[in-house]
Simulated scan of single mutants.
Amino acid sequence: MSVHVPAWAADVFGKPAPLVQLGLGQALRNMQANAQAAHEQSDSRTKHTFGMSRWENSFQRVQDELKDLPGAATVKPYRFPFDLTLVGRGLIYPYKYAETTTDVRTARGPKESALIRELFSFAPPPRHTQDALDADWGISNPQPEPRGALANLPEGTRLILVPFACNASELLAVYWGIAALGAERHLEWITEPLPLTVPQTVTSHGTTPSIIPAQASGERKHTGFAEGSEPSLTLSSRMPSERLRGIPPMTEAEPTQDQISEDDATH
């Protein structure tokens, strides 16, 4: 499939740029499908399941689609639960910018956090940095130093934003481009945010079953306690010394290994 690759993408990603462009559209399509499936299977009255699944899948599905490309690598930011994908000099960060068809050029950037500030150290500086009045009042927001794997990225790495609009019903739009982070989360797009083609077909890279196993059907017969099967008992004889000392017999065999505590299920 022939695709038009913008000059900045070819410069940042190199020869794999066309595959990156196609892979990102496919990855976000898979993200939406997985998040919708999680929401439907949870039978939840809220959108919490969809939101959490969408957040996780936005990073993991990108990794699935691009991990085998030349120059692809995973990057683990400091205290972030998911890996980011690096191809060539392009560090890819997908994020939801809206739940409706809002103009991406006027939408705000990702929610402010230490990670976002570190990521934007790989973006061009904003044209507006600090007013003279701010300097007089001692107000400053210095650029933090990247931590974790971000600190080891090669010089020339460029942050590539992949903003998308979606809700629990559909994926509305996906874009990519380079932007600086201005005041109050306003993005200053250095490149025009270009739409990515989103295919209709969903691809899968895992072994997670797509169909819930069938449950037992038909009317179940509820039996009373007295109608149940008689349990088997483990009998053991007492030693002669125990009989002489009047030690009562054990009514239950000791476990052969430590029991698993309820807390183990949470780790």
Rank of each mutant, 00 (worst) to 15 (best):
L22E: 14
S229D: 13
C166L: 06
R127V: 08
F82R: 07
L66F: 03
Q36P: 00
D43A: 13
F164D: 04
S140D: 11
L153Q: 04
S210L: 10
A165W: 10
G246L: 06
E242D: 15
S140A: 13
P6G: 00
Y78D: 10
R117T: 04
P193C: 02
W137R: 12
S58K: 05
P248N: 07
W176Q: 09
S113E: 10
E192L: 05
E56S: 08
I139L: 13
M1V: 07
S169A: 11
R89V: 00
R45C: 05
D68M: 02
A183Y: 14
G182C: 06
A253D: 12
P124R: 10
L181E: 02
D83A: 08
D83F: 14
A9L: 09
E252K: 15
P193M: 00
S44T: 09
D11M: 09
A165N: 09
I139F: 15
T74I: 03
I178L: 03
S210V: 07
L119K: 06
T106V: 08
L19K: 09
H267N: 11
S237W: 10
N57D: 01
L161I: 04
D68Q: 11
P125K: 14
A37I: 00
S261T: 13
A73M: 10
G25R: 05
P144H: 09
S229T: 14
T207L: 12
H205N: 07
Q26G: 01
S2G: 10
V87I: 05
Y93C: 02
S217Q: 15
W137K: 13
G109T: 03
M239V: 00
N141Q: 15
D43H: 15
A265S: 09
Q32L: 02
G88R: 06
G90T: 02
L244I: 13
W189C: 05
W8T: 01
F225V: 09
M31V: 08
L181H: 09
A17P: 02
G182M: 09
Q60H: 10
G71D: 11
S236D: 15
P16M: 02
N57A: 01
L24I: 06
N167K: 03
E56D: 09
R245D: 12
A253L: 12
V12D: 01
P240W: 07
V198I: 12
T201V: 13
E230C: 00
F59M: 06
Q143D: 02
A10S: 11
L235T: 04
V87C: 04
V20T: 02
V62S: 04
V62W: 10
E170K: 12
H222V: 07
E262T: 08
F225G: 09
L133F: 12
D83L: 06
G109A: 06
E242F: 04
A135Q: 14
L133V: 07
T191H: 06
P146H: 12
V104Y: 14
V5D: 03
S140Y: 13
E65M: 10
L159T: 03
R79A: 05
P144N: 07
M239P: 00
T74K: 14
G71F: 07
T85M: 08
T266I: 01
E184I: 00
K111H: 12
P6M: 00
Q21V: 07
L194H: 05
A114G: 14
E219I: 14
P77E: 06
L133W: 15
Q41D: 07
A9R: 06
S58N: 11
M239E: 13
A151R: 13
T85P: 02
A10H: 05
H205P: 01
